[in-house]
Simulated assay, not measured.
Amino acid sequence: MQEQRRGRRIAMTAEEVDAFLAEERTCRVATVGPDGPHATPLWFAWHGGALWLTSVVRSRRWADLRRDPRVAVVVDAGQAYDELRGVELRGRVEVVGEVPRTGDPVPELEGPEQLFADRYTGGAVHHDGRHAWLRLVPEKITSWDFRKLPG
């Protein structure tokens, strides 16, 4: 993974990144399509050093990622300037499991699916036959925490 070059003074540690991604609920996913960039909000799970996304397979995002798996994802928080913090993850996504997901046993998905269900659906894992899983193992992580700025 590439090391963060700029803003290292306010960068989060690996532990802080893990904690931040475990607590925040929404990310913004940027893909590249034939008409240019496309950004959409999604729920996610951070599990095993990877960002797990579930996407409708009949969506512009899915079509973009099947054509070009490169993605940038941002998770951020804070209102006031001195509260702002976030993480940008870049890399290539890969499909895990069946497309669309119907519930066939996929050991790799047990952890992310349960984490996702605990976070968003009261613990019940649902397979609606419309979504499929994408895994992003980041090639680069950039983070910032303005709370670390000198007073």
Rank of each mutant, 00 (worst) to 15 (best):
G97F: 02
E98Y: 09
V99S: 10
V99N: 02
P100Y: 05
P100C: 01
R101I: 10
R101Q: 12
R101Y: 05
R101W: 03
T102W: 09
T102N: 12
T102A: 15
T102R: 15
D104G: 15
D104P: 13
D104W: 13
D104T: 15
D104E: 15
P105R: 13
P105E: 15
P107A: 05
E108F: 04
L109W: 13
L109C: 10
G111W: 14
G111Y: 11
G111N: 12
P112L: 10
P112W: 11
Q114R: 01
L115G: 04
F116C: 03
F116N: 04
F116K: 04
F116M: 11
F116L: 14
A117E: 03
A117Y: 03
D118S: 12
D118P: 04
D118A: 12
R119N: 07
R119E: 05
R119W: 04
Y120A: 07
T121R: 06
T121Y: 01
G122P: 10
G122N: 02
G122R: 09
G123A: 01
G123D: 11
G123P: 09
G123K: 03
A124H: 11
V125I: 07
V125C: 08
V125H: 01
V125D: 03
H126V: 12
H126L: 13
H126M: 15
H127D: 07
H127E: 08
H127P: 00
D128V: 14
D128N: 15
D128I: 11
G129S: 02
G129V: 13
G129M: 14
R130W: 02
H131L: 11
H131Y: 13
H131P: 00
W133S: 02
W133C: 08
W133I: 01
R135N: 11
L136V: 00
V137W: 06
V137E: 07
V137T: 11
E139R: 05
K140W: 13
I141G: 00
I141H: 01
T142D: 05
T142C: 10
S143T: 12
W144K: 08
W144A: 12
D145A: 02
D145N: 04
F146I: 05
R147H: 12
R147W: 15
